[in-house]
Design a protein around this nucleic acid. Structure first.
Lengths: 231, 231
DNA sequence: CGTGTATTTGAACCTCGTCAAGCCGGGTGG
DNA sequence: CCACCCGGCTTGACGAGGTTCAAATACACG
């Protein structure tokens, strides 16, 4: 059932490009009835790096971490996936990262063949799928800039504001964010250590920029200053 | 010779492409006769970040740097483009980085519309274009791991070996590499400073792992050790 | 031969990683 | 109900790795 009408992704031209990089298209149900819904327990692995890329996933509920390992065990988290994210659109033989549930999740899965069929089914949906991959590429480059050229506080604040926007897309002015992932995951995402992440959070609290009712909840107190720190 | 005419930045768009972790498909001329060939002078800009993404480019000759700027001037180079790379496959409204020639270049350009047409022309070419974007995403993640979890010598050696493979793909055992870009570009690509890049090169030389007949030429002396350092 | 740029080198400083310990909260079992 | 344990988080002391600032050198170009 194609109840969810595909939002047209044809050009918006509003000038203020940087905010519009990731247009809020409605992608819900892009995989349609080709997909089967499935529950995933906390810490469960959807697929491993280098596994045969057999399936594509759409996250319905929960948060998933995407990570890569160096031979000596150093870990890099390349991204997090939230509801409506698409995972595994590789168009290649193997997955390039491991996907693991941080919280209990609900996902829809469908085979690569179904995606190929989807791609052949028309220019509209094609554009949408390609846009998804393009957006991923764009955020990957944002992340490179963060890792290569921002300091620890800049990285952390950028992350907190980004996460708040991801978790509550409807809010233009975020008030707080609840961290679904442990400090270690944040560290591996930001190229820092758990200790540094913790210390920087403490500093923000002591500077009165955030408050911390509990370790998993960050309340933004001086949002404007935070935005400056994130640059 | 071209005087240093600052190229006006009227809109072109572009994405970026490189690396071939996967199969060595022949992509030469993938844009076909839809494209027009064009010469680009050193330091000339193909397109700017946030410009309307109007064209797609294929590099025929030369090396191009792709970069992003932070408001305060810090720069991050997100990639380099070599012959046979495709730039600007964004499937979005605007380019997400600036593309600038490091050496004199020859490129083929064609409009986005032509790419769309190409995409509609069959599953074969579709797979190829999608594979290109997927490969880009994969290298972007490699780079995140490098920036987040490798030390200065690890980053530098990884880069040198990677560059050697890019510049002479036919050689399985590289003997040397000629750097087309200045130290500052390498630094902005690796998330370091010019001074650190220079010092690390000096250290490799003093350790007898490389030799340096001239600043732009790196000769690999103990390849195996270098590979270990790169991990 | 003089000028400007790229590269190298030096010294002081500082951010962040490392190692180690302490803290807090939840769950389990006595 | 309490004692204990265990994992995640915080805090402290210390040092290494990289940045910053400054200057010397080398090189290409006019």
């Amino acid at each position: 059932m194609l109840a969810t009408a595909q939002a047209s992704s044809t050009g918006f031209h509003l000038g203020a490009i940087s905010h519009l990089r990731h247009l809020p298209e409605d992608r819900s149900g892009i995989l349609g009835e080709l997909a089967r819904t499935q529950a995933i327990g906390r810490q469960e692995v959807l697929f491993h790096e280098a596994d045969d890329a057999a399936s594509v996933f759409e996250i319905i509920q929960g948060v998933i971490r995407l990570c890569r390992l160096l031979p000596d065990g150093r870990r890099s988290i390349t991204g997090f996936a939230f509801p409506s994210s698409i995972l595994g659109l590789s168009f290649r033989e193997a997955y390039v990262y491991t996907a693991q549930a941080i919280t209990p999740c609900e996902v829809r899965r469908c085979g690569q063949a179904a995606v190929t069929k989807l791609l052949d089914s028309g220019p509209q949906i094609r554009r949408q799928l390609l846009g998804i991959v393009s957006d991923e590429l764009c955020s990957a480059q944002d992340q490179m800039l963060l890792l290569g050229r921002k300091t620890a506080p800049g990285r952390l604040v950028s992350f907190l504001l980004w996460l708040a926007a991801k978790m509550a897309p409807e809010q233009t002015v975020p008030t707080h964010v609840d961290l679904p992932m442990p400090r270690g995951d944040i560290a591996d995402y930001l190229g820092l250590t758990t200790e540094t992440v913790s210390r920087e959070i403490t500093k923000l609290k002591q500077a009165g920029l955030i408050s911390l009712p509990m370790p998993q909840r960050i309340v933004f107190v001086r949002l404007k200053t935070l935005r400056q720190i994130a640059e």
